[in-house]
Design a protein around this nucleic acid. Structure first.
Lengths: 131, 131
DNA sequence: CGACTTGTACTATTGCCGTAGTACAATATG
DNA sequence: CATATTGTACTACGGCAATAGTACAAGTCG
């Protein structure tokens, strides 16, 4: 359960950045629905085996960004507002971001020993098995 | 000229990690062919506006990984791949990891508004992008 | 009210990334 | 041989990520 929100200690990317990405992604893909409660700061820290401060900073940052809403003594929840942001980004920007994502993904895949062709083949196979 | 091998200072990912990724990717996509010479440590440092030590560490790391070969007073070159390296981990395991990477990548691309087909097309274009 | 839960705010400390500068080692070249 | 070029090694330093611990603030609930 709760396999979203994971963090990789081997990844050189800072934990706070990984966690923020994970939460943003979970919200965007609606694995975290609007109004849903996130794990408490302390609980998530224990789950991910990271420090509570790190989690707290991410929550605070995401609240500043308008994605989350926190109520003391209650918990942290997914706020209503969203969606417009990604659509309003320009085409060039989106392309650049896709490029970044692809670079990361391919680099990680090649570390596993896959060639570019093999990765492409794998992704192609996903196309058929999806809806 | 040489638009591969770039680094983003805004990205929270450490520079050395970004650079390592970029080089691995360039090799995988054969923008850096086997035997090709990489920029010198100092030159690349100037180009990317980062410190020479950072570049040197990446080169050293990639040599340890068996991807590069360095000859003092000459330069750093792409080594011939042995390909047997990756057989250490089990196939099932590698497949599962690739699946995880792919899922995340596709989810993020989807958030950007891309379809699976568009992503595939984009990745395919990387293969033939040779200049 | 009082105990509990939740998020927030500090301080202190450790460790690594990245920079800066310098010196050295090995090789090519004239 | 002398010099330039290339990679390597080392020290020192600043900055920030992350940990650890503690205390506080603002709610909930019995």
């Amino acid at each position: 359960m709760k396999d979203w929100l994971n963090v990789n200690l081997n990844d050189p990317t800072p934990l706070y950045a990984q966690l923020e990405r994970a939460i943003r992604l979970a919200i965007a893909t609606e694995k975290l629905a609007v109004g849903a409660q996130l794990p408490t700061v302390r609980q998530l820290a224990v789950n991910l085996k990271i420090n509570a401060n790190t989690v707290a900073k991410v929550y605070a940052e995401l609240e500043r960004a308008g994605l989350l809403e926190t109520r003391r003594g209650v918990g942290t929840f997914v706020k209503e507002r969203e969606a417009a942001l990604t659509q309003f980004t320009r085409k060039r920007e989106r392309e650049r971001e896709l490029r970044t994502l692809a670079d990361r993904f391919l680099a990680e895949a090649t570390v596993l020993g896959y060639t570019l062709d093999e990765v492409l083949e794998f992704l192609s196979s996903l196309r058929t098995e999806r809806d």
